[in-house]
């Protein structure tokens, strides 16, 4: 159910901004280009990298991170205050040089994020990341959360007390 909901939001966004999404996969290169579409793409690529560095689960692949970014920018689209916060936050992260942060190696990126981890920008992305990434069914199955059991009659006959190693 959640996946279809996320997909709807995803399709919604594609309809609204086809250009933006087609530029997004250009990733790092896009981060160094100017122009309104490219700025949006650069922002998305940077936020996606931040989301990954906050909670890296390489085994789940790219898709949950992409979905999280779609979800975050869906929210940004509805909240001008958040759009401004993210725009300014990313500028600061780059230290005034567009593309500077994402060009760092992983250790450098993480170190820079640690410096700003109490900023409102970082906290906002952090909260939104938890909401999206950890409500993603691919991530759920990876970490062992089974979600709703209502459709299957509950966990009563499905292991609610099956622990056998105590």
């Amino acid at each position: 159910m959640r996946r279809s909901w996320a997909r709807r939001a995803f399709i919604d966004l594609m309809m609204k901004a086809p250009l933006l999404l087609s530029v997004a996969p250009a990733g790092l290169a896009a981060c160094r280009t100017a122009g309104p579409g490219a700025i949006a793409a650069r922002q998305r690529a940077c936020v996606k990298r931040i989301v990954y560095l906050m909670f890296p689960h390489p085994e789940v692949g790219d898709e949950p991170y992409e979905r999280a970014v779609v979800g975050i920018f869906d929210l940004v689209g509805r909240r001008p205050d958040l759009a401004a916060l993210i725009g300014q936050g990313l500028e600061k992260l780059d230290g005034g040089q567009p593309g500077a942060w994402i060009a760092l190696d992983e250790a450098g990126q993480v170190a820079r994020l640690r410096e700003i981890e109490t900023s409102p920008f970082f906290r906002s992305v952090y909260q939104a990341t938890i909401d999206h990434l950890y409500n993603d069914e691919r991530v759920w199955s990876h970490i062992g959360y089974e979600g709703s059991s209502f459709e299957k009659g509950g966990y009563l006959g499905r292991g609610f007390d099956d622990i056998d190693w105590l």
Binding site: F55, P56, H142, I143
Partner: peptide, 14 residues
């Protein structure tokens, strides 16, 4: 956040 916390949450079922 980060590598360590993600690896702990990876063991959600523990």
């Amino acid at each position: 956040w980060g590598q360590e916390y993600a690896s702990q949450i990876r063991r959600y079922d523990h």
